[in-house]
Amino acid sequence: MTLSTMLSTMAAGMLRTCGIFALTLIGSLPLGMVVALLRKSRSPIVRGIIRVYISVIRGTPLMLQLLVWYFGPFYLFEWSIRGWRFPALILGFIVNYAAYFAEIYRGGIESMPVGQYEAAEVLGYTKTQTFMRIILPQVIKRIMPSITNEVITLVKDTSLAFTLAYQEVFSLAKQISASQTSFMPFVIAGVFYFIANYAVQFAMERIEKALNYYR
C-alpha cells in the first residue's frame, strides 16, 4: 500500500472522528446546562437522580459506558442492535460529556457573586432574564478555561470509538497497521490528533480573547 492510498483510506476515518467530536459537543454542551439546572431543582427526587447520574458517569470508564450503550439493549430487552452502533456511540459520548460539562457549569454558576442576582432582582428582572442576560454571559467567560480542557480531552477520547469497532481514524490505523505490518498508520493518526488539538486550542484561545473585553 502506498502512502497516498493509506492517507486516503484514513481520511474517511478522520472525517468520522470529526463527526463524533462535533456531534458530541452539539449534544453535550446544551444537555450539560440542562443537567446543571436540574441539579438545582426544587424536587429532591430530581436532584437525587442527577447526583447519581453524575457520580456513575464520573466513576466508570467511558469505554465501559460505550459497551453498555451498545450491548445493553440486546442483553436487557433482546432488541436487535443492527444499525445501533453509531447512535449508541454518540449517545454514550454525549451523556458522558454532559455530566462533566454540568459540573463545570455548576461551579461557574456558584462562583457568581450574590450581588449580581440582587442587583438584577431589584431592577425587576425575572429569574429567566437574570440568568440569561446577567449570569450566563459571565459564567461562560469564567468557565472557558475548563471547557477548553474538556474539549481537548474529547479530541483524544474519540479514539475510544474503536471499542465498538467504529471505523474512525484510530480503528483504521490499527487495522491497516496489522494488515500491512507497518507503523506508518499510527504516525499518521498521531499527526492528525496533534493537528486537531492544535486547531481546537487556537479556536478556544480566540473565543477566550473575544471575551476579554471586560473583567
Partner: peptide
Amino acid sequence: LVFQQFNLFPHYNVLQNLTDAPIEV
C-alpha cells in the same frame, strides 16, 4: 437600591448598564 459594593454588571458597558433594565423590564 444603590449598594455599598455598586454591583454593576461587568459585561455591560456603562450605557448598557443604564438601558438594559428599562428596555427589557
